[in-house]
Amino acid sequence: MINRDDLGSWLEGPKIEREDGDWPGRRLGLPETGSHSLAPAWRRLLGLLVDWFLCLAIANLIGSSNPFLAPGLFALEHFLLVSTLGYTIGHRIFGIEVRRLDGHVPGFAKALIRTALVVLVIPALIFNRDNRGLHDLAAGTLILKR
């Protein structure tokens, strides 16, 4: 019989069988826990929701009936903040940041790739063993705890 422990929680991210002493980010030289370890899926999701609802609120305040205004604001916010600061407002609230593999802020080219794939949604929902989404793999970035 299958129980809840077999399935895990969707907030925990994908369940991947790991060898003893293995953790997400180990192959990248990242610590298992603490500062500069890979951010868990729940922080990423909540940060994304904060950013989305903030952009939705701004679009509603503007009062436009254009259905692309909120997604456009979201893409603009994500691109500008990630490329220059390494985090969005939602990321900052939940203590996470976007970095290149060498630890620097992504910059314009990587942030543009990442933003385009985040806006498409599906690439951000597909993870690898290190809990990096396709958008992070394509851009060469990771989301770390601050």
Rank of each mutant, 00 (worst) to 15 (best):
M1N: 10
I2L: 12
D6M: 03
L7C: 02
L7F: 04
G8C: 04
S9G: 10
L11E: 09
E12Q: 09
E12I: 08
E12C: 06
G13Y: 02
P14V: 13
P14Y: 07
K15E: 14
I16M: 11
E17P: 11
R18L: 13
G21D: 10
D22K: 10
W23T: 08
P24A: 15
R26P: 07
L30H: 04
P31I: 06
S35Q: 15
H36I: 15
S37M: 02
L38D: 14
W42G: 05
R44E: 05
V50A: 09
W52C: 02
W52P: 02
F53L: 11
I58S: 09
A59E: 07
N60S: 14
L61F: 15
I62Q: 07
G63C: 10
G63N: 09
G63I: 08
S65K: 13
N66T: 05
P67R: 03
P67C: 06
P67E: 08
F68C: 06
F74W: 14
F74A: 11
F74E: 11
E77I: 13
L80D: 14
L81P: 11
S83M: 08
S83L: 12
G86A: 05
R92F: 13
R92W: 13
I93W: 09
G95M: 05
I96S: 07
E97I: 09
V98R: 04
R99M: 09
H104F: 13
H104I: 07
V105K: 04
G107R: 07
F108P: 14
A109C: 06
K110F: 12
T115L: 00
L117Q: 01
V119S: 00
L120G: 00
L120C: 01
P123D: 00
I126Q: 01
I126M: 00
F127E: 07
F127P: 01
N128Q: 01
D130H: 06
N131K: 03
G133V: 02
L134E: 02
L134H: 00
H135F: 00
H135A: 01
A139F: 04
A139P: 06
I143W: 05
K145E: 11
